[in-house]
Structure formats: C-alpha cells, structure tokens
C-alpha cells in the first residue's frame, strides 16, 4: 500500500490523477457511444416487437467475443492508439445496455401502452413519452452493469500502449513491482464504485418517483 500513498506517484504526466482521469475518460466516452447505439436499437425492437431474436442473437454473439482478441485484431488492422480500445470496450458495453432497454420497453404494461395510443399519441410519442420513461429502471440496470464491466476492462488499454489505470497493472507486472500492481487494481475498484454512484445519482434524477416501489416514492 506504500506505493499508493507515495506523494511522488500523485503528480506528473504518468501520476495517479492523470491515469485516473484517462481511465474515467475511456469509460465515459465508451458508455456514451454504446448508449447511442444500444438504446435506440433496443427501444425500437422493443417497441415494434419485431426482431427480438436479432437482439438476443446479437447480444449473445457480442458477449461471446473475447475482448482481448477484439483489441488485438483492431490494433492489427488500425494500428496502436485509443481507437482499438474504444472499439473493444463499446462492443463489450452494447449487449447489457441493449438487453436492458429491450426488456424494459417490453415490460411496460400493455394497458399503459394501449392507453397512450387511446389518448392520441403518435408512435414516436408512445415510445418517447411512455415506454422509455417507464423502461428507465431496467435501462439503468443494464447501463450500470455495462459501466462496471467497462471500468474493469479498460485496464487493457495499457496493453496497446494507451493510458489509464491499466498502466500501473501492466508496468507493475513488467517491473515485478507488486505494490504498483496492487495500487492499480485498488484504484480501478475505487473508480468502479464512484462511477456506479454517479450513475445511481443520475438514475435518481431521471427515473420518475412514480416508478419507485409503492410507499417510498412521490410527494405525500
């Protein structure tokens, strides 16, 4: 633990704060890109009810891909740098978000959806004003699960020479410096907790109190 608290490691371009920020940056951008792809796909298929098997098949196929293999393949094709890291991480994050969104939209009470049409909402309104808001708890479930995986897996960025907390793990391994490795691992875990707390906060802000378990939500 000495390594972690040595002030020398807390400054400079390869210090802990910089690596933390890099790692956080990978996570955030990955989650944004993955959400932009996975949520519309899952929501659309969930809304129309058509092509559910595509979602399930695609999810399973993506889940089965070994992230390291994807990383190496993209490096071979596009060279070193951040790009392969994002490809690998986005592919990792898509399945849980897509599955959560699909399941969330499907799980909205058909009576509610029928009522939305009955009051005169157009299909876009049914999806955006009723189905998605009601699916948010499950969407967040998938999203937060994906975020945890991404924080943990973003360590492999260091493998291709990019930054992030993975540097401490891989450098520590190369130097037989177990203090540094341990510090890297602990920092990843810490970041995972913080990221999850952040998204939990976002969830509280965006999910309607009306969807919380009865008796706890809303203004009495």
């Amino acid at each position: 633990m000495g390594w972690l608290f040595d002030p020398a490691h807390w400054s400079g371009s390869s210090g802990i704060p910089v690596r933390l920020l890099e790692h956080f940056g990978y996570t955030l951008l990955t989650m944004v890109i993955a959400a932009l792809i996975a949520i519309p796909l899952g929501a659309f298929v969930g809304h129309t009810g058509k092509g559910g098997f595509v979602i399930v098949g695609l999810s399973n196929a993506l889940r089965a891909l070994p992230t390291t293999a994807v990383l190496i393949l993209v490096v071979l094709w596009a060279g070193l740098g951040d790009f392969p890291v994002y490809v690998a991480l986005v592919l990792l994050a898509i399945p849980p978000i897509m599955a959560g969104t699909y399941a969330g939209v499907r799980a909205v009470d058909p009576v509610t959806v029928d009522a939305a049409r009955g009051v005169g909402m157009r299909e876009s309104g049914v999806l955006l004003q009723v189905e998605i808001p009601n699916a948010l708890p499950l969407i967040f479930g998938g999203f937060r699960g994906a975020a945890l995986q991404v924080v943990a897996t973003a360590t492999i960025a260091a493998y291709t020479g990019a930054g992030g907390l993975g540097r401490f793990v891989f450098d520590g391994l190369a130097l037989q410096d177990f203090g540094q490795m341990l510090a890297g691992a602990v920092l990843v875990a810490l970041l995972a907790v913080l990221v999850d707390l952040g998204f939990a906060g976002l969830q509280r802000l965006t999910v309607s109190p009306g969807l919380r378990p009865v008796g706890t939500g809303g203004n009495r």
Binding site: V111, D114, R117, G118, V119, G120
Partner: peptide
C-alpha cells in the same frame, strides 16, 4: 382519438406521471 375521450377498465394511467 384526441377528439374522443376513452376510459378503460384498468384506468390505464401513466405510472411515471403525476
């Protein structure tokens, strides 16, 4: 539909709205 009121058995209120 916006010009015709529609009430159903289970009320069908939107749970996420006040």
């Amino acid at each position: 539909r916006r010009g015709i009121g529609y009430v159903i058995q289970q009320a069908g209120l939107f749970p996420h709205r006040t």
